[in-house]
Write a protein that binds this DNA or RNA. Sequence first.
DNA 1: CCTATCATGTAATCCGTTACATGATTAT
DNA 2: ATAATCATGTAACGGATTACATGATAGG
Lengths: 177, 177
Amino acid sequence: MSSEIRLTPTSYIVLGLLEAAGEATPYDLKQMVAISLGNFWSLQHAQLYTEPERLAEAGYLSERREEGGRRRRHYSVTARGREALREWLAKPTAELTELRDLALLKVFFGADVNAMAAAQLPAHEAKLAEYEELRKNAAEAAGEIPEGPRISLRAGIEGERGWIEFWSGLRGEADSD
Amino acid sequence: MSSEIRLTPTSYIVLGLLEAAGEATPYDLKQMVAISLGNFWSLQHAQLYTEPERLAEAGYLSERREEGGRRRRHYSVTARGREALREWLAKPTAELTELRDLALLKVFFGADVNAMAAAQLPAHEAKLAEYEELRKNAAEAAGEIPEGPRISLRAGIEGERGWIEFWSGLRGEADSD
DNA sequence: CCTATCATGTAATCCGTTACATGATTAT
DNA sequence: ATAATCATGTAACGGATTACATGATAGG
């Protein structure tokens, strides 16, 4: 334990999910990501194996290994891990995310705007529909969605609407700014 | 030359910039990035040294080395590079960018929404102001901005407005979706 | 039973970041 | 002249992606 490591967003995702779950295997984490934050911050499943290992070595997680069969590793957050997560959450960030949108990058370099809009619009519309479905199901269910996920979902929805407006506005418009 | 490499967005940025510039050194590229697409897709300057080298090895760029003094490397796009760029630009992408917003991630895991809004709002407002300044200056100048950069700038402005709306909407609002 | 798909995990690679380092230029 | 800053470049490291690999489960 206790080699010094740098904690990345991935680290905090693992910590945050484990804090909520109590104990989980990498595969459990994968499932959790898939149905929750994976929509706006996805991870390679391999990272959900290597990252907990890293965190455990550094003392942020404890590991319990199954004896028989697959010898699955079950992780849970230690006091140190809980503290790190708490500190991270308590520090509001002024950092801004870059767009890093591939379609926009191509347009920047001269790709055909109409063609790009034609490809992007349906994709964004599908994503929006998916989000709205999620929200609807959530509303119908227990009404138990915590604030964080609910707000994130809202951001996703508003973001998609923004993109749809953006690409719609460009389509067919020869020129303007 | 001609080892097989994978072309990443970074590769295409280098190709695109060099295609526009004709010939440039890594430092020139750095300057170009800083004043243009760096706003929505920034790069570490070290990549502007390693990436051209990679591309040159694979035959996408040619390199001319200064004899005296600093022995700067000047790169330019080869036919192969031009072709790769052309193909990439011609293929509209349906890929969607994830938000990957750090502030949102923290909120997802339970960070205080008001505090986060208080940190994010001024940052987004500053960025928006910067973009609008850019647009204004551009309008006053030659009127020569090409379509791609102009559209990207528009995306940046609309994006920032969206975020400002989002965080404003959350501030002070106890609960809703 | 066989095979296709899903569950689960490990290994290798590589891109991107960080750190370091030195030459040029400007300011005091 | 000397310090400070900018210009320019290289090296090392590490996290993220990709590729590979095997155990379980279900369908035909």
